[in-house]
Simulated scan of single mutants.
Amino acid sequence: MNSHSKRRTIVQSSDIIPKARGRRAHYAIFCGIILGFVTLYVEGATTYKPILNHFLMFFTISFFMRVIKGICDFCEEIHHVQARYQGKYSKAASACINVKHFLLMLLFGCFFLSQIDMDSLIKLSKPSTVVLVCISHLLLVAFGLQQPTMVEVSEICEKQKLNVAHGLAWSFYLGYLKLVLPNLKKAVSSFNKENSNLLCCEEICKLHILIPLSCRIHSNLSEVDSNIQFVKELPLLQIDRAGVKGRVYKNSMYRIVDEDGRLYYCPVEYATPLHTLYAMSGTTSAGFSSEDRLLQAKLFYTTLKDILENSLDCRNCYRLVVYDDSAISEDEAQNIHFLSREVLWHLEQQAKEEYSPLMHHPSIASSEPELMLSNSESPHSLHSHGT
């Protein structure tokens, strides 16, 4: 008992969990500034005017370079205005160019032009000039004038894979899709045998993963679209995982009705991590805006798409159904059967992709391709012949 207590105390008292960073770096910066002025005094550079002119020149050049860098970034961002800034060029410009940098550049530039005295700058010794450059840079950092723009932060996060969406996509894949997708064809085959061969083409049946860019996720698909009806759960998959014996993973088969009353069957479900993004945007402490949510939803899709395309285990077992429903109310989506149309479009595309390589074969070319379409206008019984 004592050994356990001692071990617990050691773990709790050790610094294995990082704490929030303090302000020691800022204190060090101010110490560096003071040390720089002391060095200037020792060097004998105590004349007011050349030091002021140097600061004005350095600040003007620094802010000018920041604005130039922002203009260069804007040249790239104008090609992403629709996808990243909802078509608003003003948002793209503000993300690239810090307005504070632009105003300070004008301010210091005007002071510099009115006070410029090149002779006084030349009088400074080389060591004094180096010290002044260091002090100038430290002053900019101390007053928060060297912060990266939104574009620079976004670029760093995307390149270093630091986005919320990146972690959610990998978690969704490793914790769920990598487990259920390799077992999907076996589950679909068992389902088909138990339900009188309800599916005509079970070998190409894929899990349709819904990715609404609004991140709105519903528990009941029938409430979202009455043309989508739950049929039955696929056979359960049980795996011992993370200390849980026989953890259950399952998918649901749905019946989808098109405008002509034809019946289609396929497994459908939402990408559940999107609910996290939606909840974060509604939680003040998360500091996550609706615009952040939209961008992260898009990055979630692209990241998950890249992961699955490089996964041999999940190949030909899924379709990502991404759609923008942010401008459509739930009632309107129900009236126009928005969701069922999206899924049916993907089923149609899947049929073309699966059958087009075989169209030269006489048995295929003579008939229209069908995908998971019931053999009759009315749904088959879900009971097997043995029950």
Rank of each mutant, 00 (worst) to 15 (best):
A297S: 03
F30D: 06
G109Q: 07
I204K: 01
L213A: 02
S285E: 13
D292C: 14
C200F: 05
K193V: 10
E354Q: 08
F59W: 13
S14A: 15
L371K: 09
P357D: 03
Y254W: 12
L237T: 15
I336C: 15
F64P: 01
S384N: 15
P357I: 05
P362N: 11
P357L: 04
L207H: 12
A297N: 01
A271M: 04
S363H: 09
A28Q: 14
A165M: 12
F102L: 13
S94H: 12
V343N: 00
P182Q: 11
V257R: 01
A93S: 07
Q349A: 02
P379Y: 03
M372F: 11
K206V: 00
L308I: 03
R241P: 01
A20M: 07
L347I: 06
N183W: 08
P212E: 00
G109A: 07
T276G: 06
A83N: 10
I307L: 10
S381W: 03
L294P: 00
E330Q: 09
D258S: 08
P267V: 01
C96T: 10
V99G: 09
G32T: 11
V343E: 00
V244Q: 04
V38P: 04
E370V: 14
Q86K: 13
R7N: 03
V153S: 01
S329G: 15
S356K: 12
Y48A: 12
